[in-house]
Design a protein around this nucleic acid. Structure first.
Lengths: 146, 146
DNA sequence: TAAATATAATTGATATATCAATTACATAGC
DNA sequence: GCTATGTAATTGATATATCAATTATATTTA
């Protein structure tokens, strides 16, 4: 049996788009901020907006599993962007807090991210964005419901 | 400065869609074939259709870098799906060949992949697929041209 | 309340991602 | 024919991805 090569499918297009965006965004971040990855930046943004998030919750927001999140937070603690401490309300969890150094990153990150989004979405209409969201939503639903 | 949280952006939608598709596809592959990842399967499909591809070329087709491809092929050679041998026309390259065991995988893989694509794209029109491709193409171009 | 079950996080093992440096070979230009 | 430059692949270091097993704590239920 023959199947169309992966390179001819829409999945290839989706994959290459998100990978190019990530490369582009990472490059622009690295120009201005040392030692921060996109995903680490997203962790900071989420924690900033929702203090008290557990590792598990952060993991879901950035599409990682718990094991990856444990290690990712280890490295962010090692780099002094985050502080991890005992949570006495529920000793299974930790309190994850943004340090001064982490807050410094948060001062510089937003304009870069905004710029990344704007330039990568240049020339794309609101309507197109809505279509994109709807169609991708259908695919995702098909994958999770079956 | 405030930015919209990543979870509210189209990039989050794109990312989650491709990740769900990958999970879904991997799960269906694993039900029938032991010890093959989606990416390893894609390498087999590409090599089957284009014998003589170099590691570098395969890497581009599946969006990996050379270092990852070296290691990926190492493991596929270790699992006896591929055979690597000297290429006397250009001794910087290798000849990468599919073994009998690799061909066995290639017998079983295509119907699963076809089924994965069909079910995940169920209810999506040809027109929507075209739109998807066009819009994502614009984003990708914005990211590579800037 | 003791035992069963559930949850959050960690750990080990293995694979992959990424960058920079290196090796080995090929080719162009002098 | 030599040197400079280019190219394919590897390697080392570190981070992340993934699965399964484990630890520590909470919650439910008999």
């Amino acid at each position: 049996m023959n199947v169309t090569l992966p390179s001819e499918t829409i999945f290839h297009v989706i994959e290459s788009t998100i990978k190019e965006y990530r490369k582009f965004a990472q490059k622009n971040i690295s120009k201005k901020i040392q030692d921060i990855t996109i995903d680490q930046g997203m962790v900071l943004l989420f924690l900033n907006d929702h203090p008290g998030l557990t590792q598990k919750e952060i993991a879901e927001l950035v599409f990682k599993d718990n094991a990856s999140m444990t290690r990712m937070i280890n490295t962010m603690v090692g780099k002094k962007h985050l502080k991890r401490s005992i949570n006495n309300e529920d000793r299974r969890r930790y309190k994850i807090e943004i340090t001064t150094k982490g807050k410094e990153v948060l001062k510089n990150l937003p304009p870069i991210i905004q710029q990344n989004r704007n330039s990568s979405l240049k020339g794309i209409t609101k309507n197109e964005l809505e279509q994109l969201e709807v169609i991708l939503g259908k695919i995702r639903t098909n994958c999770t419901k079956n």
